[in-house]
Amino acid sequence: MPYRSLVPEAKAGLNKFKMETANQLGVSFTDYNGDLTSRQCGSVGGETVKKMVEQYERNL
């Protein structure tokens, strides 16, 4: 399910961040990700959120 951004202008940046995280984890995200496992998608989502929280904490 696609996410809704609180700031729609940030969508491109968030997508780029997600793709960078997927590449670091060795998961190939494309326009169609139906062939990926739930574990692969979940690991990308979890790692993305983890990095966002770390970045936020550094900026406090």
Results as ranks from 00 to 15, higher is better:
residue 37 T to A: 05
residue 53 V to Q: 01
residue 9 E to H: 04
residue 51 K to S: 00
residue 32 Y to D: 14
residue 26 G to C: 06
residue 15 N to A: 05
residue 10 A to L: 08
residue 35 D to Q: 14
residue 15 N to C: 06
residue 34 G to H: 13
residue 29 F to P: 01
residue 52 M to L: 15
residue 47 E to D: 06
residue 26 G to T: 11
residue 26 G to D: 04
residue 43 S to A: 08
residue 2 P to M: 15
residue 4 R to A: 13
residue 27 V to D: 02
residue 45 G to H: 02
residue 24 Q to V: 08
residue 44 V to K: 09
residue 50 K to S: 07
residue 23 N to F: 06
residue 41 C to L: 15
residue 34 G to K: 10
residue 14 L to K: 03
residue 18 K to W: 06
residue 59 N to D: 02
residue 60 L to I: 13
residue 22 A to W: 01
residue 48 T to A: 07
residue 52 M to Y: 03
residue 13 G to E: 15
residue 51 K to E: 00
residue 43 S to V: 06
residue 29 F to C: 15
residue 17 F to P: 01
residue 17 F to M: 08
residue 49 V to G: 05
residue 3 Y to L: 00
residue 32 Y to T: 07
residue 37 T to D: 05
residue 49 V to W: 01
residue 11 K to C: 00
residue 49 V to F: 04
residue 19 M to P: 01
residue 52 M to Q: 11
residue 8 P to Q: 11
residue 60 L to S: 13
residue 19 M to G: 06
residue 4 R to M: 07
residue 29 F to Q: 15
residue 56 Y to L: 08
residue 59 N to W: 05
residue 48 T to C: 11
residue 37 T to W: 03
residue 51 K to M: 00
residue 15 N to S: 03
residue 41 C to I: 15
residue 45 G to S: 09
residue 26 G to K: 07
residue 47 E to A: 02
residue 7 V to S: 05
residue 21 T to L: 02
residue 2 P to L: 14
residue 6 L to Y: 01
residue 25 L to F: 09
residue 39 R to H: 10
residue 43 S to Y: 07
residue 57 E to W: 09
residue 44 V to M: 05
residue 59 N to E: 07
residue 28 S to D: 14
residue 8 P to N: 15
residue 25 L to K: 08
residue 9 E to L: 05
residue 45 G to C: 11
residue 48 T to K: 06
residue 18 K to E: 03
residue 38 S to P: 01
residue 17 F to R: 10
residue 21 T to V: 01
residue 10 A to R: 12
residue 33 N to G: 02
residue 60 L to V: 12
residue 48 T to M: 12
residue 60 L to W: 10
residue 12 A to E: 12
residue 60 L to M: 14
residue 43 S to M: 13
residue 40 Q to H: 07
residue 25 L to A: 04
residue 6 L to G: 09
residue 40 Q to E: 13
residue 22 A to Y: 03
residue 56 Y to G: 00
residue 47 E to I: 02
residue 10 A to S: 12
residue 39 R to G: 04
residue 23 N to D: 13
residue 2 P to G: 03
residue 29 F to E: 15
residue 10 A to I: 00
residue 2 P to N: 14
residue 1 M to L: 00
residue 20 E to W: 03
residue 42 G to P: 03
residue 30 T to F: 01
residue 1 M to D: 04
residue 20 E to Y: 04
residue 7 V to K: 04
residue 16 K to E: 13
residue 39 R to S: 06
residue 24 Q to S: 14
residue 23 N to Y: 09
residue 28 S to I: 14
residue 6 L to V: 12
residue 4 R to H: 08
residue 37 T to K: 07
residue 35 D to E: 12
